[in-house]
């Protein structure tokens, strides 16, 4: 470790998740992966490619096409002493398992008077932007963040994609990990010894003094790109990566707002009743007198995600929109 540069290696987000699964399987025989197409096919997003050959069909289980089925069975397996990683191909299909997640996994500890934790990890792809139409492009992680009893994570960087899974598996409570499908091909630098990371703190990904951009997942990188452009104009944006959507680490973004006095939330979810609305409300409650401008939100258009490329691009938050809005907010009061 004499040369810091040499210890970094380039990996894709997909490879980072795969490494995380592999390491968890190696470390703990109670861990197994279950979901649609995760075995022979290697996962619909190729995340589990090669793992069947490495760990065998008992631990890399192709399931029937039955979301409620394998999530419910995952709850049972967790109660029965296992540490299941359940892959729901995309968040769109989590709706078929919503009762198992919300009405069962999230309340088991409560219903049993503190006796039964459900150490279940659910991984699911989320987000739009891949031209797969309204029924495959939703960003519903904000919905799940509404539910007490579960934890909701949203790794944006390869380091988090690599490190959040093990911490989630060690957590006694159900944890949902949402991976934006647009990130799987993204490359990033990972330290050679990369491993578990915390799952309860937000991170400042870029420091600035003029405005705070609060974001997570794929929108984080749009926010960072926007910050770069703004910087050339003399506006220094601070960019926050929420990382955990439940619980929310409000201290990190409130501290930032106290410094910059302006906040723009960038969220791929729909605006009404959104996670962005929650963050906006928290800023109002916790940093109202710090604000020099109203909190703004940049969310997806409140329509089913269009299939056509140019319409989909128009519906999603984009770098130029972030730049425009941030610029207006900073310049509004001179």
């Amino acid at each position: 470790m004499t040369n810091g540069v040499e210890t970094l290696r380039k990996v894709t987000y997909r490879e980072a998740v795969r490494e995380a699964i592999r390491e968890a399987m190696q470390k703990d025989t109670r861990v197994f992966l279950m979901g649609e197409d995760v075995g022979h096919y290697g996962g619909c997003f190729a995340v589990s490619k090669g793992l069947l050959e490495e760990f065998g069909p008992e631990r890399i289980r192709d399931t029937p096409l039955s979301e409620s089925g394998f999530v419910g069975a995952g709850i049972g397996a967790a109660l029965g002493g296992m540490r299941p990683i359940v892959e729901i191909m995309t968040v769109n299909f989590s709706l078929l398992a919503a009762d198992q997640i919300i009405n069962n996994a999230a309340v088991y500890l409560h219903m049993s008077g503190g006796l039964f934790n459900v150490p279940l990890v659910i991984r699911s792809a989320t987000g739009g932007g891949r031209q797969v139409g309204a029924q495959h492009s939703r960003s519903l992680e904000g919905w799940f963040a509404h539910i007490p009893g579960i934890k909701v994570l949203s790794p944006a960087t390869v380091e988090d994609a690599r490190g959040m899974l093990w911490t989630a598996l060690e957590d006694p409570d159900p944890v949902l990990i949402f991976e934006n499908s647009g990130l799987y091909n993204m490359e990033g630098m990972l330290p050679a010894g990369a491993g578990a990371v915390d799952i309860d703190r937000a991170r400042v990904r870029r420091e600035g003094k003029d405005i705070t951009l609060i974001s997570y997942s794929a929108s984080l990188f749009k926010s960072l790109d926007a910050a770069e452009i703004l910087s050339r104009e003399g506006i220094e944006a601070e960019v926050i990566d929420l990382r955990s959507l439940r619980p929310l680490d409000e201290k990190t973004f409130l501290d930032s707002v106290a410094k910059t006095h302006r906040a723009l939330v960038v969220d791929e979810g729909w605006r009404t009743g959104s996670l962005a609305a929650e963050i906006s409300a928290r800023i109002m409650e916790g940093a109202f007198y710090e604000l020099d401008a109203p909190v703004e939100r940049l969310c997806s258009a409140e329509v089913p995600m269009p299939y056509a490329k140019h319409l989909e691009e128009a519906a999603l938050p984009q770098v130029d929109k972030i730049v425009d809005l941030a610029r207006k907010m900073v310049k509004a009061d001179g």
Partner: peptide, 17 residues
């Protein structure tokens, strides 16, 4: 009717273990 799935998962865990 949601709990028979938990029983299925438990039974799977017993078999696996």
């Amino acid at each position: 009717g949601t709990h028979p799935l938990h029983a299925a998962g438990i039974a799977y865990a017993m078999k696996y273990r």
